[in-house]
Each structure stands twice: as C-alpha cells, then as structure tokens.
Write a protein that binds this DNA or RNA. Structure first.
Length: 870
RNA sequence: GCCGGGGUGGCGGAAUCGGUAGACGCAGCGGACUCAAAAUCCGCCGCCGCAAGGCGUGAGGGUUCGAGUCCCUCUCCCGGCACCA
C-alpha cells in the first residue's frame, strides 16, 4: 500500500475500475427492490458551479448507500437545455445557441464525471434534442385535442423600443434590461394548459406526500389556494348597462352589508367600456398599463383608483354603490372585480380614506369600539366577529352570516356559494427562439390545427439570426410557411415556443427509456417509476413551480393512458444554497467593484475574529460585504474544478457533506476544504499503519478483547447504527461524518495490541472504509481493496450492527437539584426507578445542595437524569 | 405586500420524542519534533470571575420540576410570487 495519499492516482484508478466493471449501469432486473434516485437536472450554463456539486453529491451519497443496502439503483443525468441564456450568449458572442449549449454540455459532463458520480450515462438526455421534444409535441397535440390546452389572451411585458416580449427577470426597475425603455403591459394570444382542472386533485395529493418536507407541501397548498366563498352580482344601475351584472367573488359575505364601493381591474371590460368618452378614466387605465407584470411589484405598489362614473345596485339593499377602477385588482384572479368593505378589510380601509369613500361598520367584537382613526386588527377578524348594523343578520357569527346571506342571494338569483382557486391556468407560449416549437399550424379555413404524428417532430432550425428584437422564428419564412395538414391550403406555422418548464415536467419519466424512438414512454417506466421516483433532490427554490408542474404533468400523462402513477416523487429532499462572503471596493462614482474571495486576505485579530480584508494583489484594504448566494454578479463564486485539481473530488465531496446538513445553506470555506483533506490523509495514514502490520480477519465478537477494546467495539457498532440512521432516515450527512471522526479519535486512543485487538482494528477500518464510501467513493474503494485484497467496495454490503457489542453494565445519569445541573452519578443499567432515586439521594452532591431539607418531588428519567425538587 | 423557512461560541455546525447546550470540524493560543519551515503529534479553547459560582441559544413575555426545542408578541436575514432556471 502507498504510504502517501495521492488523490489524483487513486481517483483515476477507482473511476477506471467502475467503468471497466460497468458499476453504474442500471438494469431492469427482478429480485431486488428498485431505487430510482434523481437530482434535478442542470441547465447547461457553462461550467459546473458549487450548487451543482452539492446537489449531485447528495444524490450520489444516497444512490451509493442504497446500492450497499442491496437495492437496484438507477441514477441518471440529463440537461435542461432550452432557455434564455443560450439566446443571450448567441447575441453577445455571435455563437449559435445550439453550439453554445452543446459545448457547455460537453464541458459539464466531463466535470460531473470527474466527481465520481455513479451515474448511468447510457440514459443521458438533453431536452433540446428532437428525439426528446418530439414526444413533448406529440403529447401537446393530444392535450390540445382533449381541450386541456386552449388559447386566450395573456398579459406580457412589452419593450416598446426593442419591440419584444421580456421575461420578468429582464425588467429592472420597470425598464427593459437592454433598451432601458419603460416597460408596458400588452395582451397577446397565448396557449394555456388547464392546470385548474386538476386543482382539487393536486391539492388532495399533497396529503399523500409523506416523504416531502412539510413546508413544501404547505407552500403548494397555499399556492393552489382553495377558498370557499360566495360569487355574487351587483346589477348595474346605469340605463346604458341596464340589467347587466357585475360579478364579484368574496370570502367575506358576512360583511356584504358594509360594501361602499366595487372595484374592477383596469383590463375589466366594464372599465374599458366606461373609459370611452371619459378621458380621466382612460388616462388612469393607461397609467395602469405601465410597468411589468410581476406579481411582487403589483403587490407592493401604491394602491390607486379612479371612479368609472357608473353605479351598481347592492344585491340585498338596492343601495347605489359606485364602481371604481383599482390598480390593485387582478384580472386573472376571480372575476377581475371585488366588492370593497372598507370597515373590515385593511386595503379597502386605506383606499376609502385616501379617496374619501364611506366606511360602514357591520361587524363588531365584544368590548371593542370601532373608530375611523386608524385600522385595528380586530376589524378584519372573522373568528370573533358578530354582525351589527346589518338588519336581519345582526347577532350572527361568521359562518351563520355567510350561510344566511348566500341563501338570500340565491333566492334573488344574484349569488351562490362557490369554490375559488388562487391557482391560474399555465400560460405556456413564449415569443422566444431557443425552445420547443409549438406543434400547431394556423389555417385561415380550419383554424388552429395540431401537427399530425407523421409530421413530428417540428424541428427547431439551428441556423438563425438572433437580434434581440422579436422572435427570430417569426422572421423565417422557411420555418413558418407551410400547408394546412387538414385542407392542404397554404398556412402559417406557429412561431412561439414552449415554456422550458414543460420539458422539465416529464424528463424524469423519459430517463427510464430515453432511447425509445417509437413511443414517449414504455414498460421500463412502469418498472423504475412504480410508486414514484424513490428520491428526488433539488433546490428549495423549485418548491412550487417546477414541482407543481411535474405533479400536474404526471397526471396528464396518466390520463393519456401512458402510466399508472399520480405522484411522481415519493421522497423529496430540498437542498439549501451555496453561499460565500463578498468583497468590494467603491470607485469614484460610488459603483461597487466586486473582488473574488480568492483575491482577498481576511485579517483577523489575536482571537481569530475577522477585522477586515486586503487585496492579495495590492495589499490595500477592501470592504467586506455580506454572505450571499454564489453568483457571477457578486464575483463570489468558487470554481469547483480548481479544487478538484488541487485536492481531488473526494475532498470536495467530503467538505460539502460535512459543512452543513443538506437542507440548510452551505458557506464555502477554503479552510474547511483544507480540513476535509487533512481528515482523508489521516484516514489513509491510519489504515496504512494497520495494513503495514498485516491484514487479518475482522473481529466478529467481543471474545478475547480487553475492557477498553470492548468500549471501542461498542463505539464502532453505535457508530454503524448512527450512520445508517443518518444516511437512511435522517438524510443528514454532516453528523454521519462527525460520528466516523469520533470513532477514529477513539480508535487512536485505544491500545489495539494483541491478536484480538488487531482483529478489532481490522473490523474498525473495514467498517470505516464502507461507511465513508458513499461520500468519498474513490478513497473508500482504494482503502477497502487494501484492507481486504480482492474485495470491491462498490459491490459490498453496508456494515450491520452487532447488538451483542452494545450491551453495558452501568449507566451514567445527570443529577439536577431544582432543575439545575449539579453533577452526575452511576447506577447499574438494570436499576429500577426507586433504586435510581435512592442512589441519587445518596450522592454527596445531593446531600450538599439539599442541606438537610426534604425532597418535595423527585423526577426520574431512566437513562437520562434525576431531578430533585426541594 | 402575500406564502414558506431561519437566527446557537471568533466561524461552519451538534443537541433526532421537553431532559448534560456547544458533539465534530475550522480558526486561534501554548507545547513537542526541526538548523528552520511545512507536515505531523500533545494540550487549551462560550462569556464574566482568583475561586466558589453566576450568566448564556436574535429581543421580550408565558407554560413546565426542567425550554435551543412548546405557546404569544416583536425583530432581522433568506427563498418563492406564475416569462431566470
């Protein structure tokens, strides 16, 4: 055995061994339970970043651990290859999006392979390949024919200078990122997927996802947002609109008697109509069109409104109620109109005070007095409220009032109870080039005609001219000029592409059969995806959109008859971000210039506290910024490749798994990586010393061991149990590593001379190599082969706990007096409560602190502590 | 603004079911080895205090024999908000 740990050599050898033995190939074989372990596939943005390394290492640890449990593991990898950055790169560097993407894939694939991930590369897929997206187009045409995809107007960000649609990300402070022009809203026809048809099922399904983090289920539940309320109508009073009804939805029908105005969205037909011949209103509506479509901006902007000059009748009292346009009313939620009850809704309260609209109290809480001086929490509290100033409804609580008012509205034909969803249908059209073409042909006679199967795929041309203004496909007659599949007349091909979320909504199924050119999915999907993907791993930022769309698509594909599965992901692990400190300098204009953490020396005081930083280049001070997500813009990314070259893949994998649990954010630290490297060198050194004495057969019991050796063997089997639990149930790897470190510390302090001791050392080292193998597979492979010549860690079983090693004669209990820790004492492990209590009272510590006073109460927690209350 | 999560030594974190706060590691300090350095090894290391002891898990309050953990109020930070992926 080499004395020195040389990662470059052992990593190359280990990977060559795995390649030669096809260790990572997944085959559909019976007899073993299957384990499909999937990490969210990357967007090929250029090079691997630390977030990728973390994600794929977590996945690999789980995949390798489950293989050691005897499961049939599939771990595939693919590329989420359509998206905006390729278009931006094409524009900036004059390189075709396709070529840029493929180069990035080649580079990142090599980097992934250098990490030693046990991926079955034969199942690789890229979403930009026609072999992949043809099946997406095929499914699109089925869904279109079923009516699950339909066309309607949608609102987008419009850049009036570049004459193009912008993504929310491309709108910065209300302006286009390239042109700097003020962005406005524009309505264009788009295709939508009817996700709302599955709202009830997507909500109910969350209850079955017991392998998901509770917060993700809760976020999805709130996103879907089921609310039961009342849909009701205000009849327009104006003669021009005679008998026309203005519908609203409310969850607070109990406050209906307090309505003092109704507000509609700027895009509401009534607002648009009323603006004709009303220049002030038209100007206000035009103002509402300014700015982008992002919901966060919408929710934080100043609430403004304008009267339409129209009035409507209160459905129960017949009172004249003014109709306003409000910039805070969403056209896409509910009816695009809301009833306003200023006394009992905080937003309406502020709005009414701003515009001098009446405020009418209709619910009250015992002991509280209503005043117009300012909003109070209880005004909107439906749990304690009863109706007041509400005529026949006075005295009713929330539920009774809603029931009574809904019943009265129903009698008048002016309302009914209704379920409302926050979830909206999914707009999937994008006016972009680098995406999956929408397989529709527009015929003047036949309308929107789906492309027939035998004409699929509609291939995306790769030789295009990207200008940044408008969609390139719409300028390519050779792409859009076609004939109608139905009638044969000249027709125009759809030039929009699909939202890239569509590709990522079903790739996990296709990994089971990426090579099938005759069908979207086949029986291999039934095998690998039975009961769902066993483990899915990815960033918490995908908690809602990607995971909800994937759940939706799985049901669409199920209902198309292709699979028998509703929930795609049985277990979900959401990983935190990788963060690093930031450093910058201000130039004369106050602009920040970011320095990479690698270009900076951090100065500390004599106790190691950071006190400042200087540049390595010029020695001058730099400003220390916050700790933020690694990004290009803050120049605080650390390139994993440099570290792999310096320390080897195992060190990076170990550091990433050790620095924090998977679901928390992880701060990069050079010193931490150095520490991980030191640990691996130490493991190697200790194993080398043991092998130097000659390998033997590992101990299998306590026979012949000294007392300290028995203690070590107990520690070994406790550690095996702990590591099992951490890899399996807890999925928390930092504590598993810490446990192995503790074991090695104990091992070094124990005298292992003698034949029995040497056999125990053999048992410890074999177990350590296997326990670490999922995290640091290269060194694990090498060590195990040295310890057990001819053995292969990649095919080995995970160590099992020997219960006989765990028995103990005595236990140490903590002694508390009045809840404060005062000492400890030892009792036989078999002692009962009264014996423990007596032993506790007999201790010197107890006598000293009780000072002759009697014990009022003694609390005994066996195995833990005794608390004497005086 | 709305939804979700988080705050523990100088730092990353541990404490899994309400029961020893700070495991494990990093940084730092002291020592051994060395001509010297690196590497390695040994020891110390929450704060205040000579000590006894006291204090201590973002802030304030509560429940409990006992709270980092449960409840209430507040605060700061992070993720998402439907066209970034």
């Amino acid at each position: 055995m080499q004395e020195k740990y040389i990662p470059a050599e052992i990593e190359r050898a280990a990977r060559e061994h795995w390649r030669a033995t096809a260790a990572d190939r997944a085959v559909e074989t019976g007899g073993k339970p299957k384990y499909y372990c999937l990490s969210m596939f990357p967007y090929p943005s250029g090079r691997l970043h630390m977030g990728h390394v973390r994600n794929y290492t977590i996945g690999d640890v789980l995949a390798r651990y489950h293989r050691m449990l005897g499961e049939n593991v599939l771990q595939p990898m693919g590329w989420d290859a359509f998206g905006m950055p390729a278009e931006n790169a094409a524009l900036a560097n004059k390189i075709p999006a396709a070529r840029w993407t493929r180069q990035n894939i080649d580079c990142m694939k090599r980097q992934l392979q250098s990490l030693g991930l046990s991926i079955d590369w034969q199942r690789e897929l890229a979403t930009c390949a026609p072999e992949y997206y043809r099946w997406e187009q095929w499914l699109f045409t089925r869904l279109f024919e079923k009516g699950l995809i339909y066309k309607k107007l949608g609102t987008v960000n419009w850049d009036p200078v570049d004459q193009t649609v912008l993504a929310n990300e491309q709108v910065i402070d209300g302006r286009g990122w390239r042109s700097g022009a003020l962005i406005e809203k524009r309505e264009i026809p788009m295709y939508y997927m009817k996700i709302t048809a599955y709202a009830e099922e997507l909500l109910a399904g969350l209850d079955t996802l017991t392998g998901w983090p509770e917060e993700v289920r809760l976020m999805q539940k709130n996103w879907i947002g089921k609310s039961v309320g009342v849909r009701l109508a205000f009849v327009l009073a104006d003669s021009k609109y005679q008998e026309q009804k203005l519908w609203v939805f409310t969850t607070r029908a109990d406050t209906l008697m307090g309505v003092t105005f109704v507000a509609v969205a700027a895009e509401h037909p009534l607002a648009v109509h009323a603006a004709k011949g009303n220049p002030e209103l038209a100007a206000f509506i035009a103002e509402c069109k300014k700015g982008g479509v992002a919901e966060a901006d919408f929710a934080t902007m100043e609430k403004k409104g304008a009267p339409t000059g129209l009035f409507a009748q209160h459905p129960l009292t017949g009172e004249r109620i003014p109709v306003w346009v409000g910039n805070y009313v969403l056209m896409s939620y509910g009816e695009g109109a809301v009833m306003a009850v200023p006394a009992h809704d905080e937003r309406d309260f502020a709005f009414a005070q701003k515009y001098g609209l009446p405020i009418k109290q209709v619910i009250g809480v015992a002991g509280e007095t209503f005043s117009l001086d300012g909003w109070q929490e209880w005004y909107g509290d439906k749990s304690r409220a009863v109706c007041v100033h509400s005529g026949k409804y006075d005295g009713l609580g929330y539920t009774e009032a809603v029931e009574a008012i809904a019943a009265d509205l129903a009698k008048l034909g002016l309302g009914e109870k209704e379920v409302q969803w926050r979830l909206r249908d999914w707009g999937i059209s994008r006016q972009r080039y680098w995406g999956c073409p929408i397989p529709i042909v527009h015929c003047e006679v036949c309308g929107d005609v789906p492309v027939p199967d035998d004409q699929l795929p509609v291939v995306l041309p790769e030789n295009v001219n990207i200008t940044g203004a408008g969609s390139p496909l719409a300028k390519m007659p050779e792409f859009y000029e076609t004939s109608c599949p139905k009638c044969g007349r000249p027709a125009r091909r759809e030039t929009d592409t699909l939202d890239t979320f569509v590709e990522s909504s079903w790739y996990f199924l296709r990994h089971a059969c990426p090579d099938n050119d005759r069908a979207m999915l086949d029986e291999r999907v039934d095998y690998w995806c039975a009961g769902g993907i066993d483990q899915y791993i990815g960033g918490i930022e995908h908690a809602i959109l990607h995971l909800l769309y994937a759940r939706f698509f799985t049901r669409l594909i199920r209902d198309a008859g292709l699979i028998d599965l509703s929930e795609p992901f049985k277990n979900l692990l959401t990983q935190g971000m990788v963060v690093a400190p930031t450093f910058f300098r201000l130039d004369a204009n106050g602009k920040k210039h970011w320095l990479s953490p690698t270009e900076v020396d951090v100065k500390t005081d004599e106790r190691g506290r950071p006190v400042g930083a200087t540049s390595k280049t010029d020695g001058q001070p730099v400003i220390v910024g916050g700790i933020e997500k690694m990004s290009k813009s803050k120049n605080n990314g650390i390139d994993p490749q440099t570290l792999i070259v310096r320390y080897g893949a195992d060190t990076i994998r170990l550091f990433m798994m050790f620095a924090s649990p998977p679901n928390q954010s992880l701060e990069w630290s050079d010193a931490g990586a150095e520490g991980a490297y030191r640990f691996l060198r130490r493991v190697w050194k200790l194993a080398h010393a043991h092998v130097g004495l000659g390998v033997t057969v590992a101990a299998s019991g306590n026979a012949g061991l000294t007392e300290p050796q028995k203690v070590l063997r107990k520690k070994l089997h406790q550690t095996i149990g702990k590591v099992h639990d951490d890899y399996g149930r807890r999925q928390q790897f930092n504590t598993a590593i810490a446990a192995v470190m503790e074991l090695l510390n104990a091992c070094e302090k124990t005298d292992l001379s003698g034949a029995a001791g040497h056999a125990l050392a053999q048992e410890v080292f074999e177990a350590v190599a296997l326990m670490l193998f999922p995290i640091v597979p290269h060194i694990g492979q090498a060590l195990y082969a040295e310890l057990k010549p001819g053995a292969n860690a990649a095919r080995a079983a995970f160590p099992i706990v020997d219960a006989t090693a765990l028995t103990q004669d005595t236990v140490e209990l903590m002694l508390q007096i009045g809840g404060k820790l005062r000492g400890s004492f030892t009792t036989p492990a078999a002692a009962d409560r009264s014996a423990i209590e007596a032993a506790a009272l007999a201790t010197e510590t107890a006598r000293k602190f009780m000072d002759g006073k009697p014990a009022r109460k003694v609390i005994v927690v066996p195995g833990r502590l005794v608390n004497i209350v005086i």
